[in-house]
Structure formats: C-alpha cells, structure tokens
C-alpha cells in the first residue's frame, strides 16, 4: 500500500534523471542529486564517554568525532561534525527510521537525543574539474585541496543559502567531489544558482546516486 504512494523529491520537477549523462565530456561542472539519503541529527555530550561509546556502537562502530568540521566516513555511514555537541548521521536512503530508533535507544540513557531530519534536506553533488570554481562563486569557505581535505565538512552559505558541505572524494580520482546537504525549500534555487555559476565552464547533469568513487555511502 505505502509503496504506491508517490514521494516527491525537492528537485523532481527538474527531470534530472532524464537529463543525466554518464559522459560529462568537456563540461567543467558536474551536478547531481542524491534523493532521500537518511539524515539524523545526533546531540550529546562528547565528554560523556558512555554516550560516545553508545553512539559509536549504534552506528556500526563509527564514533562521533570531536574534531570540528570533519566527518568520519565509513562504508554505510557518514558522520559529520556540526557543533561541539551535534552531529549529522548520513546513511542509505530508507534506513532512517530503523537507524534513528536504534540510535535513540542507545544514547537516550546517556543524555543523547536523536531527531530524524531526513526530509529536511536533499543532497546536491558538485564534482568535475571546475567544481571548486563554481562553488567559490557563492561560498566563502576556502576549498583549496590542502585546506578542505577529503572528509572535511563545513556549514556555511552558498549563494546566501545555508548548506552543509562535505568533501566526498578521497583525492585519488581526477576530480574533486562535494556533497551539499541543502534545505529542501531552497534546493531549487540553489540548483539554478549552480547551473548559472557553472555556465562558463559547461555544466553536465550526472547520475550521482551510485557513482562509485572514494568511500562512503555509495
């Protein structure tokens, strides 16, 4: 029954799947969307070892990091630092309910709280040889390869839209890859901005759901 109910993604009206190409060719900026990735907000006291341990255990051994603006990336989970007592769990689409329940049960006894924010944001991927140039047109973060390394993340503005930004490649490939978790309501605006910003380098829409590059949730 529930399967029959259509879910609407934030960018579905753009028909990205139909526009996607496997061969971005000469385009300098490759844009894609990863719909409905599970996203769970985790709060807790990092000084509380029991909380940290419980969270790690519930997250397949991925321990929350205390290093600001970095992510711990594992096979099925990205765990992004958002604040001194706040993290974002990103996991495969559809896993949010079970994961949130498991995590909440684990951390609640240790003062942790869990909120499912899966639907609040969608994920836009920006890659390609000119990805950094396109992002620099709206984002004040220094994205130089030595300054924003694989696994680094940041919360900032892109074109006056709040984003959670993750460097999602492992520096072994030829081009960088970034994931932007953006509020659903502003995803259309941000997408149009990125297409405009990338225009001088050429923009290709890529199927980014399952691009197998680097580690993380693929």
């Amino acid at each position: 029954m529930a399967d029959a109910i259509p879910r609407l993604g934030a960018l579905d009206h753009l028909g990205l799947a139909a526009r996607a190409t496997a061969e971005p060719g000469a385009a300098g900026v490759w844009l894609g969307e990863r719909r409905f990735l599970a996203k769970i907000n985790l709060r807790g006291d990092p000084q509380n070892a029991a909380f940290m341990q419980a969270a790690g255990a519930a997250l397949d051994g991925v321990q929350p990091t205390t290093a600001p603006n970095t992510a711990v990336r594992a096979a099925a989970i990205d765990l992004l630092w958002l604040g001194p007592d706040e993290w974002l769990v990103v996991a495969a689409a559809g896993s949010e309910a079970a994961l949130a329940a498991r995590l909440a049960a684990a951390v609640a006894p240790h003062g942790g709280t869990v909120t499912d924010v899966t639907e609040s944001r969608t994920t836009i991927t920006v890659s390609g040889p000119r990805a950094r140039d396109a992002l620099a047109k709206g984002c004040p973060i220094d994205l130089h390869p030595r300054r924003f390394r694989p696994g680094d993340c940041a919360q900032s503005l892109l074109a006056r839209v709040g984003v959670i930004l993750l460097r999602a490649d492992d520096a072994t490939g030829p081009v960088p890859r970034f994931e932007l978790h953006v509020l659903r309501s502003m995803a259309d605006y941000l997408w149009r901005f990125l297409e405009d910003a990338g225009q001088e380098y050429g923009v290709a829409v890529v199927e980014s759901e399952d691009r197998s590059q680097g580690s993380g949730i693929r």
Partner: peptide, 11 residues
C-alpha cells in the same frame, strides 16, 4: 571558537 576563521556573512 569552534570552527576557526570564517567570513562575517556567516555570523
């Protein structure tokens, strides 16, 4: 104090 140097527009 947590994120290091950032541009004023974030604050």
């Amino acid at each position: 104090p947590w994120c290091g140097p950032r541009e004023e527009v974030e604050f």
